[in-house]
Design a protein around this nucleic acid. Sequence first.
RNA 1: GAUCCUGUAGCUCAGCUGGAUAGAGCGUCCGCCUCCUAAGCGGAAGGUCAGCAGUUCGAAUCUGCUCAGGAUCACCA
Length: 593
Amino acid sequence: MLNELKSAWKMAIEKELRSYLSTDDIPELAIGQPPKPDMGDAAFPMFPYAKLAHKSPAAVASDIASRLADHPEGEMIPTGPYLNIRFDIPAMADKIIDKAIGDGDEYGRNDSGRGRKVMIEFSCPNTNKPLHLGHMRNDSLGESVSQLIKATGADVMKVNLINNRGVHICKSMLAYKMFGNGETPESTGEKGDHFVGRYYVRFAQWEKEVEKAREENPAIADDPSFVDPDAAAQEMLRAWEAGDADVRALWEKMNKWTLDGLFESYRNMGISFDKLYYESETYKLGRGEVMRGLDLGVFRREDDGSVQVDLAPIGLDKKVLLRRDGTTLYITQDIGTAVRRHEDWPFDSLIYVVATEQNYHFKVLFYILSLLGYKWADELHHLAYGMVNLPEGKMKSREGTVVDADDLLSELSALAKAEIIEKGRENEVGDVEETARKIALGALNYYLLQVQPQRDMVFNPKDSISFSGNTGPYLQYTAARISSILRKADAENFDGVASNGKLLVNDDEKTLVKAIADFPEAVRKAAAGYDPSIIAAALYDAAKTFSHYYHDNQILKAETRELSLSRIKLVKALLQMMKNGFLLLGIPYLETM
RNA sequence: GAUCCUGUAGCUCAGCUGGAUAGAGCGUCCGCCUCCUAAGCGGAAGGUCAGCAGUUCGAAUCUGCUCAGGAUCACCA
């Protein structure tokens, strides 16, 4: 709403500038924000026109202000070299507030993606271990960006490619076979993914033990009973590929354990998928595409029999697409999988949420798909996110510094629970466990999403996730307080009282109205840039302003009933905006906390 | 070696389509609960926006170089 107005002003001022300077060829007018609210609501710097006019920028600003008679709504305040515009925010308040309240859960959404089909791939776990903090960033981002794109009216298909085969999967299977003694997640009471993960770790131990034994006595390798762990894992993979019944049965059993555990974690994290792909079903895909590329002449068969693609046009080297023995590689599978997906659900766009480590891979993949003539190759995006590091450095599984997703969530829940009890809010809150869980989730999602995706981030378990300051729980708390006000307002009698947005004249009120008006634009920007941090910032700014406002002003007991009701409507609109933003960030909304 | 990403307060991060005095949170220090939830509010201290040069009326923002950190450059996934 305010944006349209600013654009209208921009056009009007540019038109006047053209007439003032007697030329159509003028630099584009920039739209800025005055540093202080009392200086206006939009700023147009006049510097670029000073030279053309042979006058100072300040003179241009005042000249334009006095010449511009027919202009959009608002008041011109030439401020030095800037032509500032002040809008009558209170006069627009009712319209903005009514729109937010009227649109309800739809407020902030737009139509820009209507009719578009967007597929988004994220998570993609291995079925040999539980999720860790790095996965959580991926999952948080994937889910949030999915919501953002849905908010543009597009159809979104969330897909997850389960990496359920390969030598790393065989390692946990092998260790279980050797050391499992028939125990199961049920018998040990463990969550399935943790159970299987334990055997993956056990395999690494076994490797070390064997290596050490061999160092001490190299002759043991000649013993017929000697088993080399890596060779055994490779052997198991061959058996798996050959369809060996026992290996397949073990694989099925252990995969189910892991997946049951992983999906429990997803549920706890508020993550869901529309379609699952399994690597066991896709790993052979892509060979046909490579053959087609050979026919098209975009790939070439080397003397040794392998098939390669020349990446010189994009400034890279060569890449092998089929091994000498004709088997596929990671990139081959991804080619085939992309094609398969487009057949399954003809997307207009496909977003891969994958760590920045794979920038090279996706650059190559997208180029290859365009070589193969797929028009949709131009609409493939790699949403690359940075690593989550610890204050001491990288997380390393070998050193046991990996932060487990389930552990982290339950630790945060415990902290939140302790906080609820310390504040004596058990009764108000109702279900303490559930509330604590939602606070933990809000804290975690906000923490992970407030940083721009591409940046590496530091996770400090000791103090980075606190519940005060610029955090998810602060936002939840703010929303809960507004809810509380609205509950009390409901109990009051406002019969015969009319609200009036024109009464909302103090700076905080104007800032809040503007924040509400600007929210749809924030959603647009965040969706276009796949960047939830824009929403996080918008919500935090609004919450901060509200907290200040609420501290200084009475809402239910304002000077007049009209003012009270007007303020109630303002915070009701604000709450609607916050709730809608929460949904985009995976922050649970709490009516009380 | 090449390519890409990053460098802003003690720490974690915003700000980057150039524009007015570079902002938050945490931490430190000082205040505020007879008033709609103190997970809150206010205040103080804290900056060579890594460095140098360039473009520009104007650079944290754009360009180049240098330095520092990270990632990638497999017939692994």
